[in-house]
């Protein structure tokens, strides 16, 4: 049943060209970000005409990133790539730390074919992209509105941070205090044992009373 559902979903995806729609959207976002970048250290010259392909477990389809001059083209090529990375979205986040690379390969979370330096260069480009959002926003809504909006945003972020810290602190305090009141397993066992002892003693007492009562009746 699952295989059938997967087949139907693959067929539907192909008919609706979801891979191509995703590639188109990503390409637009990436190139817009490259256009807005203000960090001079981001350069694509050394990557010109190179192609890196990422096959993510979650997507079940490759995404190829090819560099042409100052642009990145996103396609779904499978046939040719300078570097192919097979991994998952979760692992991709861990990949940002260089020292994790060998460990992730050992754990079979990551498979790399081709020039690994290219993948790192691509990752560097992504990490170093810097966009001056305030300037870009001001172009559309004006300086004053941007200033107000930025201040509001900053206040909101600060408040959310404060709230998050407060909730964390309260939770820690609650746990610490409650911990003192909560009985341990040993205490519970001890209590159970005492209850058992009392009931045994009560039973013995009842037996003795019954015996005494019998003797008195004689």
């Amino acid at each position: 049943m699952n295989a059938f559902a997967n087949k139907v979903s693959d067929k539907l995806g192909e008919q609706l060209m979801l891979k191509q729609a995703l590639a188109l959207t990503l390409e637009k976002i990436i190139n817009k970000a490259l256009n807005l970048n203000i960090n001079d250290s981001v350069e694509l010259k050394s990557l010109n005409e190179k192609r890196v392909t990422i096959i993510l477990d979650e997507l079940n389809s490759p995404l190829s990133f090819s560099v042409y001059q100052q642009q990145i083209l996103v396609t779904s090529f499978t046939e040719y790539s300078d570097c192919t990375i097979i991994t998952s979205l979760k692992t991709l986040k861990e990949l940002q730390k260089n020292q994790q690379l060998t460990e992730l390969i050992k754990q079979d979370k990551l498979d790399i074919t081709g020039d690994i330096k290219l993948a790192q260069q691509f990752a560097n480009v992504a990490q170093n992209l810097t966009i001056d959002w305030q300037t870009e926003l001001a172009k559309h809504i004006g300086d004053f509105a941007t200033y107000k909006l930025t201040r509001f945003g900053k206040t909101l972020v600060d408040k959310i941070k404060f709230l998050k810290n407060q909730v964390q602190a309260d939770s820690s305090e609650y746990i610490v205090h409650e911990q003192k009141l909560v009985i341990t397993k040993n205490q519970l066992n001890d209590f159970n044992q005492q209850v058992n002892n009392v009931s045994e003693q009560a039973e013995q007492l009842m037996l003795r009373l019954a015996t005494i009562e019998k003797q008195l009746n004689k």
């Binding site: 060209m17 191509q20 188109l24 192609r51 396609t75 046939e79």
Partner: peptide, 18 residues
């Protein structure tokens, strides 16, 4: 606008390389 996706599908199927 779907013609853009049809053309992308064609590019993807071409296996073009430098």
């Amino acid at each position: 606008g779907v013609h853009r996706l049809w053309k992308r599908f064609t590019i993807d199927a071409s296996g073009v390389r430098p």
